[in-house]
């Protein structure tokens, strides 16, 4: 193959047709409240790890919903399970419990 000094870059678009949501669907069964997230961001704003590592439960949930498992799992390692996000969630999502469930379900990856 010839090297022209530039490449065909892969599309940054999320293709929902190919998103593998099988694990997410399973997660929804265990944690139905995850669907209630309205992306208000109070979890991320309250998160003590956010400003150091970019940890954000809001982003974590969106990534899972879009089938981006790798990004989600990587983010989980930054959580310290302090539970502040659970305290501020206006939709009453038990985010701490949710994070543990995600760890259980996605740990093989």
């Amino acid at each position: 193959m010839m090297d022209f000094g530039f490449k065909i870059s892969p599309s940054s678009a999320i293709n929902l047709d190919n998103a593998d949501l099988s694990l997410y669907d399973e997660l929804c069964k265990a944690e139905p409240d995850i669907c209630k997230c309205m992306a208000c961001g109070s979890c991320s704003a309250a998160c003590p790890a956010n400003r150091f590592s970019g940890m954000s439960v809001r982003k974590l949930i969106i990534d899972l919903q879009r089938g981006k498992k790798k990004e989600a799992v990587k983010m989980l390692s930054d959580c310290m399970l302090c539970g502040k996000c659970t305290m501020v969630c206006p939709r009453g999502i038990n985010t701490r419990h949710l994070i543990l469930s995600i760890c259980k379900l996605y740990k093989e990856d």
């Binding site: 022209f4 000094g5 530039f6 599309s11």
Partner: peptide, 14 residues
């Protein structure tokens, strides 16, 4: 701009 040429061909490819 040569540094951007990858965008050009990516669009054509699409």
């Amino acid at each position: 701009v040569k540094a951007n040429r990858g965008y050009s061909i990516s669009n054509t490819h699409k």
